[in-house]
Design a protein around this nucleic acid. Structure first.
Lengths: 131, 131
DNA sequence: GTCAATGCAAACGATTTGCACGAAT
DNA sequence: ATTCGTGCAAATCGTTTGCATTGAC
C-alpha cells in the first residue's frame, strides 16, 4: 500500500484514499471533500481534485464512467459493475450478475432496482493511435 | 418522422437532427453547432443545447453515457454499444459483438481497436424511489 | 392572441490552474 | 537544495437560464 507509487508521501492523499475506501456510495469530489475535512479541516478542494486525479491515473482508485455533471469515484478497483437510479442519481454496486447473454438481457431486478436498461462501453486504442 | 412529438415544428430542430443523423462520430454540442451553422448561420449554441436535450428526452436521439467534460450525442437509437479510444477520445460504434459471456470477456480486437477493457452500467429505479 | 422557440449575454457549477509557500527527500 | 504538494483565488469550460423578440398554431 505504501510502495513507490508517488514521488513523495502525503498524509492528505492517504486520508483521501482512506475515506474513499470507507464508503460504498461512489462520492463526488465535493462529498469526499466534506468527509476529509472532518479529519483535516484546512484541506482545500483543489487538493482533493489533484489527488483523485493522480490516484485514478495510477489505477489505485476508479473514476467512474458515468455521464453527468459531477465526476464520481470508487475506491474499489475489483471488477464490478454499477447500477444507477434514473430518479435520484444514486449509484450502487452490482456483484452477483454473471455475464452471460441471458442474464444481461433478462435481468429485471438487481439490488432492489427495477431495471430499465444498460449501457456497455468498450475501451481500447484505435488503429490510428496504435500506429 | 413528423408526428406530434413537439408542440410546434421548428426548422432549426429539424436541421440539428438531420446533421446529427448524417455523422457517425458522436459529436459534442459544439461540433454539431459548427455543422448546423453551415446551413443556418445565425443559430445559437443555446438552441443546439435546448433541442438536443428535448430530443434526447423524447428518445429520438441518444445522449451517450460517457464520462468526460463534454456530452456526446448519437442520432442512431438502435441498440448498439460504443468503443472509446483511451488515447485520442474517439468513439466508434460496436455492432458485431453478440453478448454472450465468452465474447464479452475475450474480445481483444473490435473495429480495429486493441481492446483494454469495458464498463457495464445498468439503469433503473432504486427501491427508495419506487415507493 | 397565445405560448413555444430563439438569440443573446449573463449566470452557473464543476474542475483546473497560477502563484507563492511549506514540506518531503 | 530541490521540487513536489498545497491553499487560495482566479480562470476556464461546458452548460443553463432570464429576458425580450419572433414564429407556429
Amino acid at each position: 500500500m505504501k510502495e513507490k507509487l508517488f514521488r513523495r508521501s502525503s498524509r492528505k492523499r492517504d486520508v483521501i484514499l482512506e475515506e474513499l475506501r470507507k464508503v460504498i456510495t461512489h462520492p463526488t469530489a465535493a462529498i469526499l471533500y466534506n468527509l476529509v475535512r472532518k479529519r483535516i479541516p484546512n484541506i482545500s478542494l483543489g487538493t482533493i481534485y489533484r489527488n483523485l486525479d493522480q490516484m485514478a491515473k495510477k489505477g489505485i482508485i476508479q473514476k467512474l464512467d458515468v455521464a453527468g455533471k459531477e465526476a464520481r469515484f470508487d475506491g474499489n478497483i475489483n471488477k464490478h459493475y454499477h447500477i444507477l437510479c434514473t430518479v435520484c442519481g444514486r449509484i450502487d454496486d452490482v456483484h452477483e450478475i454473471s455475464y452471460d447473454n441471458k442474464k444481461i438481457e433478462m435481468a429485471k431486478i438487481i439490488n432492489g432496482y427495477q431495471v430499465s436498461g444498460y449501457h456497455l462501453n468498450y475501451y481500447g486504442i484505435c488503429s490510428d493511435c496504435k500506429q
